[in-house]
């Protein structure tokens, strides 16, 4: 079986997974403790209005009809309307407002660790047991050990008072930005707008990516140490391949293989972790929206967001398989030789 056939198979496998995930979501929402009609009406509502709402929402229909409609709507991407949080607003519009902020935050909190954690880890692995290695490894452990919520609060309080503390105002530096506010994502193609949006998200992205950065560094270091002693590295040297090329060509690509699941795995964690960080930095992204929808019992909003999260996870999974397929030619090879 070729590599790309294998990849295609993996992609097709995602279809039943989306189906299953959505079904579980339905069960949790409809069979679970949330009563959407009660949530809409609030604590003061009278029984007649309550019954009317139940009726209009179709909540008294047989469960399997509800299930069929739920699945039909989601799979055809009709995400419906919010009932409680912003009553009457279409979910798509809400996602259009809240989504980009989360994506922007997620993008940078994945990218920064890759471009900081990986090089540091690779460097430490290439120079093991040197002072630089100790500093990087120790720093990585400390950095990773700091809890997100704590780090977030520290960042916010230090940055808002940076003027008084260091005589340097973070808010006015380069471009003027607020510290605790949703980033302005309009006109990103203009350099100053881009810089402003990046700067506004940077502290939150650093906090959210802190654990990933530590992980990637640690595992990157181990991976490089392992490939360093691999026989093919010795063979490459015995062929006369110069040291630098041995590192870049023969070591790094192999060292990346164990890092693929680490990086994509962290992308999953970011989905969950962003609620907390979004709250502290007041970013008002999808995490915040989801949280609001859940505590308010906004059933269609929760269901639709869950569905989007499922799609996102599946997307990350596919990305992971794609990276594997590109980096490692042994993917999908079922022995034999």
């Amino acid at each position: 079986m070729g590599r790309w056939e294998y990849f295609l198979k993996r992609v097709l496998l995602m279809v039943p997974i989306v189906f299953l995930g959505t079904t579980v979501t339905f069960l949790i929402l409809r069979v679970g403790p949330i009563d959407p009609a009660a949530a809409i009406i609030g604590p003061s509502g009278d029984t007649e209005a309550y019954a009317a709402i139940r009726d209009s929402l179709g909540l008294d229909q047989p469960l399997w009809i509800q299930y069929a409609e739920f699945m039909r709507d989601l799979l055809t991407l009709q995400l419906g309307e919010s009932w409680v949080v912003v009553r009457g607003q279409s979910v798509w519009e809400l996602v259009g407002v809240y989504g980009p902020r989360t994506l922007w935050l997620g993008f940078w909190s994945i990218l920064i660790p890759i471009f900081v954690g990986l090089p540091l880890g690779f460097y430490a692995g290439l120079n093991p047991n040197t002072l630089a290695d100790y500093i990087a490894s120790f720093g990585g452990i400390v950095w990773r050990a700091m809890p997100n919520f704590w780090l977030a609060v520290i960042f916010v309080s230090v940055l808002t008072q940076s003027d008084a503390l260091f005589g340097f105002s973070w808010g006015d530096w380069l471009v003027e930005t607020q510290i605790v506010t949703p980033p302005d994502l309009s006109g990103l193609w203009e350099p100053t707008q881009f810089l402003g949006a990046l700067k506004a998200i940077l502290p939150a992205a650093l906090v959210l990516g802190s654990a990933s950065m530590g992980n990637e560094m640690r595992i990157g270091r181990t991976a490089v140490l392992e490939t360093k002693n691999a026989n093919y590295v010795e063979m490459a040297k015995a062929k006369g391949v110069p040291g630098r090329l041995v590192v870049w060509k023969h070591m790094f690509r192999n060292a990346l293989i164990p890092l693929v699941p680490v990086i994509t795995g962290e992308a999953f964690l970011l989905l969950g972790g962003s609620v907390l960080v979004e709250t502290v930095f007041a970013i008002n992204g999808l995490g915040y929206l989801f949280f609001q929808a859940t505590i308010n019992g906004d059933v269609p909003l929760v269901g639709s967001l869950m569905f989007l999260f499922i799609l996102l996870s599946v997307g990350i999974n596919i990305l992971q398989d794609f990276l594997y397929t590109v980096i490692d030619p042994r993917v999908g090879y079922d022995g034999g030789a």
Partner: peptide, 28 residues
């Protein structure tokens, strides 16, 4: 080291014990 690189493979070459691990798995 760089003088050595010029004779490795060119003047003196080596065949190792385990042919599978000697070849880099990610290159043809």
């Amino acid at each position: 080291e760089s003088e050595y690189e010029s004779i490795r493979g060119d003047g003196i070459a080596m065949v190792f014990q385990d042919p599978l691990s000697t070849l880099n798995p990610v290159y043809t």
